[in-house]
Design a protein around this nucleic acid. Structure first.
Length: 395
RNA sequence: GGCGCCAUCGUCUAGUGGUCCAGGACGGAUCGUUCUCAACGAUCAAAUCGCGGGUUCGACUCCCGCUGGCGCUGCCA
C-alpha cells in the first residue's frame, strides 16, 4: 500500500510553502487509495514553538487535507531512537563522541538513487561525505536518524519532501542499509523561492496560511494555486477541484525548475471560485458593499472625478424623475427613464448613471446600480440623492 | 571553496529527436460590448529555447564544457 506523510517541524506558524508539500503527499496517497499521515518533527528543542503543531493541524483540516490516524510526535519517541542509535554502535556502523552518536561513513563507493520527480538518476561519491550525528547529546535524534527510523516503521513510500534534503540522501540511504532495511522511494520537490529568489521562508514573504484564511481566501483557491506551483494538469486546466487533482496528479509530471513564488493576490485571484464575479476574495465583499448598510461619507474629490457638469442641477432633475416614478421601481423603467433624461439634457447616459451611483453610494465602484438600489429601497435612495445634492451645494 | 540540483516569451509553463521558423495562461497594447468596476469577445506585440562545442540526415529535446541561479556543506530541520 502507498503511504505518504507530511512531516513539518513546529518552529512557527504553517506557511504557504508547507501547503504544497502536504498537498502533493495527500494527493499521492488519495490517488492510490493509500494513507496520508502526519508526523510532527519536534526534535529541535531550541526552535520549538508550542502553538505551532496545533496551527498545522488546524490549517490542514481547514484546507481539507485530512490525515489518517493520530499525528506521530517525535519527541514522544525519544527512547526508540536511542535504542536504534545504540544498535548501530553495536553493529559498528556508529560511534560515540562528546556525548553524541555519530554515523561512520565509508570512504569508498557511491550512492545512487532514482528520484521520482522527473525519474532522474542522482549519484554521490562517498569520498565527499562526512560522518554525521545520529543522536544529539541531549538525547534527541537528528532529522537523519528520525527520518530513517520513523519512515521505516510507518512504512512510508514514497517519501515526498523538499529539495533541500536532496544533498542528505547519502546519509539516509546509508542509514537504511546499516539497519538492513529497504530504503523507500524518494520525491524531492523543487523549492519554492521567494521574490528575491531565495528559499521561501517567513522573512521572504512566505505568508502564514492563517493569514490567507483571515484575509478571506477560500481553501479551494489556495489549494488550486499551490497545486499549480510545480505541476500542470493535463489539458491545461486552471481551475481544478481537489477531486480532479486526485484524479490527475502524478509525481512524474512535477516540474524540475525552480519556482518563483509570487504570492501576490493577483495570482490567486483568477482561481478563486466566487459568488460574485467582481469579488476576488471574501474580504472584498465588505468594502464593495458597505454602502448598502451604512450611510456613505461623501468626498468632494470623488464627485470631481465625474465627467458631468452641473451636477447639482442634474441631480435635482434625477430626483424629479424618481419622485414621479411608480413604485416599486422596475429596472427597465428606471433605465429607460434616465436614458431619456440623458438625451434631453444632452449628456451621456453612462455619466448620468455614474452620477447616481456616486450619489447613492459615495463611491465610483459598486455592484450593478439597479441591483444596489433595489437593496437600498426607494426611500433610502431618494434620501441619499437629496443628501448628495445638499453636500454638493455646501462644498 | 567542495558536493548536488536546475536553466523555454516580462511571469508561470507546454514540449522526452522530425508534426515547433516553439503552443497556452497571466501580465501588456489596441478594438468591441457594457450604467461603473469587473467580466466577456476579437486582434496584436512578446522566446536567436542561458552560452559554446559535439552526436545525428535532423536537437528545445541526447552528450561534454562554461556561465548563472538555488540548495546542502550545523549535536537545525
Amino acid at each position: 500500500m502507498i503511504k505518504t506523510r507530511f512531516a513539518p517541524s513546529p518552529t512557527g506558524m504553517m506557511h504557504i510553502g508547507g501547503v504544497r508539500t502536504a498537498l502533493y503527499a495527500f494527493l499521492v496517497a488519495r490517488k492510490n487509495k493509500g494513507e496520508f499521515l502526519l508526523r510532527i518533527e519536534d526534535t529541535d528543542r531550541n526552535r520549538f514553538v508550542p502553538e505551532a503543531a496545533e496551527d498545522i493541524i488546524k490549517n490542514l483540516r481547514w484546507l481539507g487535507l485530512d490525515f489518517d490516524g493520530e499525528p506521530i510526535i517525535q519527541s514522544e519517541r525519544k527512547e526508540i531512537y536511542q535504542k536504534y542509535a545504540k544498535e548501530l554502535i553495536d553493529k559498528n556502523f556508529a560511534y560515540e563522541q562528546d556525548g553524541a552518536i555519530w554515523f561512520k561513513v565509508p570512504k569508498e563507493g557511491q550512492i545512487k538513487f532514482t528520484d521520482l520527480i522527473g525519474n532522474r538518476e542522482i549519484s554521490f561519491n562517498l569520498i565527499d561525505q562526512k560522518d554525521f550525528v545520529l543522536l544529539k547529546s541531549d538525547g534527541f535524534p537528528t532529522y537523519h536518524l528520525a527520518h530513517v527510523v520513523d519512515d521505516h516503521e510507518m512504512e512510508t513510500d514514497p517519501v515526498i519532501r523538499g529539495d533541500e534534503w536532496l544533498s542528505s540522501i547519502p546519509k539516509h540511504i546509508l542509514t537504511f542499509q546499516a539497519f538492513g532495511w529497504e530504503a523507500p522511494q524518494y520525491a524531492h520537490l523543487p523549492l519554492i523561492v521567494g521574490t528575491d529568489r531565495s528559499k521561501l521562508s517567513k522573512r521572504h514573504g512566505a505568508k502564514a496560511v492563517g493569514e490567507f484564511r483571515s484575509d478571506g481566501f477560500l481553501p479551494e483557491a489556495i489549494l488550486n494555486y499551490m497545486v499549480l506551483l510545480g505541476w500542470t494538469p493535463p489539458e491545461d486546466k486552471e481551475i481544478i477541484s481537489l477531486d480532479e487533482m486526485i484524479e490527475a496528479f502524478d509525481l512524474k509530471n512535477v516540474h524540475l525548475a525552480y519556482l518563483v513564488g509570487r504570492l501576490a493576490k493577483e495570482k490567486i485571484a483568477p482561481v478563486v471560485p466566487l459568488i460574485k464575479d467582481r469579488i476576488k476574495k471574501l474580504s472584498d465583499f465588505i468594502p464593495l458593499t458597505n454602502f448598502l448598510w451604512e450611510k456613505p461619507d461623501y468626498d468632494i474629490e470623488v464627485f470631481k472625478k465625474l465627467n458631468t457638469k452641473n451636477k447639482k442641477e442634474i441631480l435635482s432633475k434625477i430626483l424629479e424623475q424618481l419622485e414621479l416614478m411608480e413604485k416599486p421601481w422596475r429596472t427597465e423603467i428606471f433605465e429607460k427613464t434616465f436614458r431619456k433624461l440623458a438625451e434631453d439634457l444632452g449628456v451621456k447616459a453612462g455619466d448620468i448613471f455614474q452620477l447616481i451611483r456616486v450619489a447613492v453610494s459615495g463611491q465610483t465602484v459598486t455592484p450593478p446600480l439597479f441591483e444596489s438600489i433595489q437593496i437600498l429601497g426607494e426611500e433610502e435612495a431618494i434620501k441619499r440623492i437629496k443628501e448628495a445634492a445638499k453636500f454638493l451645494q455646501y462644498s
